[in-house]
Each structure stands twice: as C-alpha cells, then as structure tokens.
Design a protein around this nucleic acid. Structure first.
Lengths: 344, 344
DNA sequence: ATTAGCACTCAGTTTATTAGAGTGCTAACA
DNA sequence: TGTTAGCACTCTAATAAACTGAGTGCTAAT
C-alpha cells in the first residue's frame, strides 16, 4: 500500500487534484480521460483510480460520485510543487512600494493586498523581538505627577509608558536619574537585569528610589507588552466564498479563530522558528493543531529583518486552494518586506 | 394614516415586536391573544393588526403568515424604550476592572466583552484628538544617522517618529535644538503652526535647519496619523448566528464592511458629534448610510474623556436585536470608560 | 494491458401531497 | 357598537415519491 506511484498514476493523481482545485467538484474518470494528454479510456483511468483510492490518495464522497483528493494527495502535490521554480507575481510588488511608512501600516497593507489578491484570508504577524536589548531609555517630565519613559530597543522598537510619581522631581534630579539609569542598563537584555542591580540603582537614586522601581516596572511592562505579539488579519469574509467552508457552524468558528488571532500567529511563528526553516510551510487539514481549521489549509512564510527579528505571514483557505499562486505571492511579499526593512 | 396609535394598538404592537425579537418568526394573532394580558380574542387582534399593517408598522412576509415589525415599528419601540429607566448590567463592570492597562488594550477588551456578552458584533473607536495641542516634543539621538522624536500632546497622547539625518549632530546642538523647538511650538495646535514660524525656526537652527524641517514633518505625520482613527472590532462571527443575516452573499459583505472598520467608526463618531449628542443613537436598517447594513441595526454610544476627546462604541446586530439589553450594556461601558480615564 | 459495454448505485432535483399556521370575512352576540 | 366564534381560503414548509445522470465496478472482447 505504501509502494511508489508509477509515472502514470502520478499524472492521473495530478490531473485529479488540479481539476478539483478548479471546480471544487468530485472528478470522474471520464473527465480525466479527456482532460489529460494520456490518451487512455475512462475505463483504464477507473482502474488506476481504484488503485489510487486503495493507496489513500483519493476518496469518493459516496459510491457513484467522482473522486476527491485526500490530505495525503495534497501533501504530495504541494511537496512536488515546492521544488519547482518560482513564478513571480509582479503586480503585488508595485502596490507595496509606499515604503518608509510605519511598520504597522505596511503590515496591514500586506494583509490586505494578499487577501484581495488571492481571495483567501490572511494573517500577518509583526516581528518578534524577544531577547532584545535596551538601546537607551529617556525620562521626561510631563507634569508634576507624571513622568514619561521612552524605551528604545535594538531594531528601533520604541515603547512609551507613563509613570506616576508622588513627590515632584526637579529638572536637575531628572537629568541625574536619566544618566544613572542609562549608564547602568544600556545594552542589557531584560533577562540580564537582576535584583542586585536594581537594588544598587535604587541606593544611588537616593530620595527618588521609588521612581527607579517604577521605571524598572515600566521597562518590564513594555518588553512584555511587546511579546504578546501584534497581528493583522484581512479577508475573513473570503472564507464564505468557498462552499466547503461556508457551513454556518464551521464558518462561525473559523471566523472566531480568526478574530482571536493569537493562536494563528503562534502557529505560524513557532513551527518555523523551531525548524530553523526560513522558507515556506504548508499545513493541510489536520496538520495544523487548531480544531476549527481541519477543513482548511494554511500556508505560512517567515520573513527576517535582522537577526532574531522574525515575523510571519499566513494565508488560509480551503484545502483546494491555489497553492501555486499562494506560494508565489508569499515569496514576493517576504522579499519585499525584507527589502524595505532589512537594512536602513 | 398618520394618526396616533391608541393605547391598545400600542400594546399589541409592542407584543408583536417583543415576540418577534425573541423568536425571529412572524407572529400571529393567536399568539398575541394568549401572550398578552389584554384578554382579547384572536379575531379582535386580527382586526387591530390589520389596522397596524395599514399604518405601516407591521407587514406580512406573505399572505397567511404572521406579521413582523417594520423599521418604523422598531423606531417607535426604541424611542419609547429610551425614556425608560436604565437597567444596569453589573457583570460587565467587574470584568473591566483591570484598570491602568494601556488604553488600546482596554478598548480591545471592551469590544470583546460586549461581543461575547450580547452576542452581537461590536466596534470600538479610540478617542479622537483633533485640534489637540502639543505639550512638548523631545528629540533624542538614536545613533549617528537617526533621531527619535517623541511627541506628547494634551491628554497624554504620545507618538514617536524616527527622523533620518545626513550629518551627525553633537549632543550640545541636540540640546539647543530641543530647547529651540519647544520654546516655539509648545502649546500650539497643529493648525496654528504656519509657514512663517517654520522659516523663523529654521533660520535660528542654522546648520541644522534641515532637521527642523524633518521634525515638523514628523509632527504633521504624527498628528495626521492619529486622525485616521484606531478602531477595534470583535464578534464578527456572531453575525452568522442570525438566520436573517447569514445569507452568504450578505454576510460576506457585512463582514467585509466590518473589516474595513473606518466607515463604521466614522458613522458612529460623526453623527454624535454633529448633534452635540452625548447619548445613545440607534440606526435601524436603512437609517444608516451603509449599504451592507440595510438588514441590520446599529446602536452607538459616545464616551468623552476630556473636552474634545471623544470615542464611540457601536453594536451591530439584526434588526430584532435586544435593544434593551444593548442599550444598558453600552451605558455601563461608557460610564466605566469615563470612570477609568476621565481624571487621573 | 487496454477498452467497450452494461448493470448498478446513489446524490440531487423535480414534482406531488399534505399539514398547519394564519388570515379575512361574516354572522352572532353582549 | 365593539367583540367574538366559526369557517373557507391561502400559502409556506415539510415530507414523500419519482426521476435523472454522473460515475463506478465488473466482465468479456481485443
């Protein structure tokens, strides 16, 4: 049952898959017999298809219907396809050219573009910066009771936090505090800041030691806040366009998964990191550990802006999605993103 | 045809509406006859209903079906309901208590809470700050070729922009630039910064005049960026739960409207501002100028944190939404938001 | 090994039938 | 005069029955 497919079987299977991708209907032997250049009668095809079914590549939804590909067939198809040359999708490139925008806008844009262009749903997650280092930290007085802490990390990720203080602080002390904190903490990653350092800092800060505590808290908050990553989605409505997903119950669940985003983004990001894989990953049906997605496929790509700053893009559609186009689109987007942000 | 409804007609109409809200099915005379405490036979009810139909408050989807309320009836119902006392929804309050979070998280939270609690879709837009003034502007050197501009506006709205510079700038000059810009621009609204001022500033900045230009641009960008407002949505999947909205074509359009957000937020924000209305607004069917929403109702509320800082919350559901509950929920949320952010 | 031919299967569509909810109208009633 | 009981009528929705056609599996011939 596990033996290799001979060439003819492969061609027939491919024909079945391609045809099903287009129509969404089960394909019969007669169709294949005409559709391919194999010049075989439908009867022959039937025999072959019968074999293929036994091997688990195709199934009949019911006796006397055509065959549809199983997840296994898709897997084979995708794998063989991945090796082929990249077909570029030029139009996308042009549309993204409004460079220099802020990252979040560009990412939103990416999500939208891909969704409208492919007619599937998309998820784009912003680069993660775990393990990132503090570049500098700037404290400014907002008013008598509030201090603004601007935190700049490597990769120019910027956060601000407002700190409340009980006693007013003089401009001079403010300056000292700034210098004190920066000389001690710059260049450190969050994990490297230990209790000893904090205590030492507080001692040196004298009367304003409580502020130091607040600043550290803010710092922790800011970096932590960064960790539960930002995610942009688009094209959820596309899901309803594919009858096999548009069942009310299921569609509702899927859209909900979509709104919650987190799980999706994690999936897209995690797997890729763990395999050191910088390329493209395809999950078909149950391969993704999300229940509501068992009738979908998901294609993910990772982009890397700097060492460690990785984000991901994912496209979700029916199992019979146009893998070819999706993969090309993703590749294009990845490259564009890296081109825009990699250096500068 | 426009004459007043007598009391009995009103009660019957109310009964029809309430019943339809619950069941989503057309309601017949017999049901009303039993459901109400009017002690009237179905025949009498029929006569009255016939009148109500003539007056345009109810219609039959087809001969020999019960009646369903028209938009006009809902309007009447909502108007009369609005005057009634507020029934509080306590549970919501508790859940929002995680104060002190950042605004965007709280707003997202509000959207989620309302969506899960009401089973409708929600839109929350962050406060707008048009016409807001600059509190101060802090420039810091990130590295040789980049400057970070932190812009703090009234209401502690904070933006940052990275500015690229060609020639390195000394710490001393940086300080001067900071002072120069702040002394000239603090307290001004964007509209008040004119070309003359910019020219004067540039002159005084000497060799770093180009940076001043960049800073002004960044300022403009930041404030402008703030204007195309942030919007959080949740519960889009709920739409599929109501058969009258779950038609694939329509649902898809609705969800798309939902993803685009902007139009919705504008609607929620604009109308309320224009009428100086601080309360709650209800759009039934065509009353909202968005095509995809003609089968929905939308209830909006505005919250005001400080003078001019207003945002809105909207709930979208089928026409037969539970207006009563929705209105209470919105009121609760408004109050909570104002409580959390109003002073501090 | 391939193919033509035929009997068989079964989802999906069409058509007919029925059941039930609801109405409008009339006539009786208080 | 307003209310009600009763009945004929209408129309949807549900159910059943009949039909269609795509597609298969198997057998026998090439």
């Amino acid at each position: 049952m596990q033996e290799e497919l001979d060439d003819r079987k492969k061609r027939i299977l491919h024909a079945v898959i391609r045809n099903y991708l287009e129509t969404g209907e089960p394909v019969g032997s007669r169709t294949i017999s005409k559709y391919t250049d194999l010049n075989l009668s439908s009867a022959t095809i039937r025999n072959e298809m019968s074999d293929l079914e036994e091997m688990g590549y195709i199934i009949q939804p019911h006796t006397s219907a055509g065959r549809i590909p199983t997840d296994r067939a898709y897997r084979l198809y995708v794998d063989s396809m991945m090796e082929e040359k990249d077909r570029e999708i030029e139009e996308l490139k042009g549309m993204l050219l409004r460079t220099e925008d802020k990252m979040d806008k560009v990412l939103k844009n990416v999500a939208n573009l891909l969704a409208t262009n492919t007619n599937y749903a998309t998820v784009v997650s912003a680069p993660q910066i775990r393990g990132n280092r503090l570049k500098f930290l700037q404290l400014s007085k907002v008013d008598e009771s509030q201090i603004l802490a601007v935190i700049v990390m490597e990769g120019n990720v910027i956060r601000n936090e407002i700190i409340h203080v009980d006693e007013p602080i003089s401009d001079e002390n403010m300056l000292k505090l700034n210098i004190l904190i920066n000389t001690h903490l710059n260049g450190l990653a969050l994990e490297e800041i230990n209790l000893g350092m904090i205590t030492a800092l507080k001692e040196q800060a004298g009367i304003h030691s409580s502020i130091v505590g607040n600043v550290i808290d803010a710092l922790a908050m800011a970096i932590k806040g960064e960790e539960d990553l930002e995610v942009y989605t688009s094209g959820a409505n596309n899901i309803l366009k594919y009858p096999e997903l548009a069942d009310k119950q299921k569609a509702s669940e899927l859209i909900q998964t979509f709104e919650e985003k987190k799980a999706l983004a994690k999936l897209a990001t995690d797997k890729l990191a763990e395999e050191g894989n910088t390329g493209i990953q395809v999950y078909i049906g149950d391969e993704a550990p999300i229940d509501s997605m068992k009738d979908c496929s998901m294609v993910t790509a990772t982009y890397e802006l700097e060492e460690g700053m990785r984000g991901s893009i994912a496209i979700i559609g029916p199992k019979r999605m146009d893998y070819d186009k999706v993969v090309s689109s993703l590749k294009t987007m990845m490259k564009e993103l890296e081109r825009i942000y990699k250096k500068e």
